[in-house]
Each structure stands twice: as structure tokens, then as C-alpha cells.
Design a protein around this nucleic acid. Structure first.
Length: 107
DNA sequence: AGTGTGACTTGGG
DNA sequence: ACCCAAGCCACAC
């Protein structure tokens, strides 16, 4: 596994319940601010494999980015089950649930 | 080595 | 606020 990919996995694994991160944030934490698209690819290939909380990943607008309807529903259910309120359109309140690693470290 | 890909992001109209 | 175009990156083939 390449370093970047591993970093991404680590970052995603570090997202706590009840929180979400955007692709951009994850890419940045992994080392490449503009590699959001790479994060996408990683999720594609590892969605089933590693036990990653992929459902805690949303796009910059706080929307469920996934296109597959079934998977999208699953993601919404998981989030809702963790206390993250998801609108019927499949969007979450980023100001409220966005996970900031920087903040977390301070604790 | 060149090309394609993808659940993104940002900036401008 | 919405839609579109272009940018961007690491990996698979």
C-alpha cells in the first residue's frame, strides 16, 4: 500500500462517531490538499474491504456524495444512528458535525 | 510512458 | 442560489 493511501485510511478511521469529514479535509490531513479525488478512488476500492467508516465522509457541501441510491440510504441510516441528523435530501450540517483533527489534538 | 478514472473542489457567470 | 468548466491528484491498466 502506498503511503498516501495508508494515510487516508488512517484519517478516515480516526473520524469519531457523530462526526463527518469532507473529502478535501481528508486529503489535506493525508498530506495532499488537492487529492480529494484520490480519496474518492480509495473509498471505491476499500468500501467493502477495510472496516472504514466511509459513511462519515461527505462532500464540501455536506451532502451525501455517493451516487448509488442503495448505498446512499445505508449511509444516511448509519449517520442517523450515530446522532448525525441527515435531511431528507441527504445533507448534514457541516458547521455542526464537521470533525476538525486540529481541535481534537488540543484536547 | 501514456491514458483513464472518480462518492471532489473551487471559482466565475 | 444554481449550474458549468476547469483544475487536481494518486493509482490502475
Amino acid at each position: 500500500m502506498q503511503p498516501f493511501t495508508e494515510r487516508v485510511i488512517q484519517v478516515i478511521k480516526a473520524i469519531p462517531e457523530g462526526s463527518v469529514m469532507t473529502y478535501g479535509q481528508i486529503a489535506e490531513q493525508a498530506g495532499s490538499r488537492r487529492a480529494a479525488r484520490q480519496v474518492v478512488r480509495i473509498l471505491h476500492s476499500l468500501s467493502g474491504a477495510h472496516k472504514l467508516p466511509w459513511h462519515r465522509v461527505v462532500n464540501a457541501k455536506g451532502e451525501i456524495a455517493i451516487r448509488d441510491v442503495e448505498s446512499r440510504d445505508i449511509q444516511i441510516l448509519y449517520l442517523d444512528g450515530e446522532g448525525v441528523q441527515v435531511s431528507r435530501e441527504g445533507t448534514v450540517d457541516l458547521d455542526k458535525y464537521r470533525y476538525c483533527p486540529a481541535e481534537a489534538e488540543q484536547s
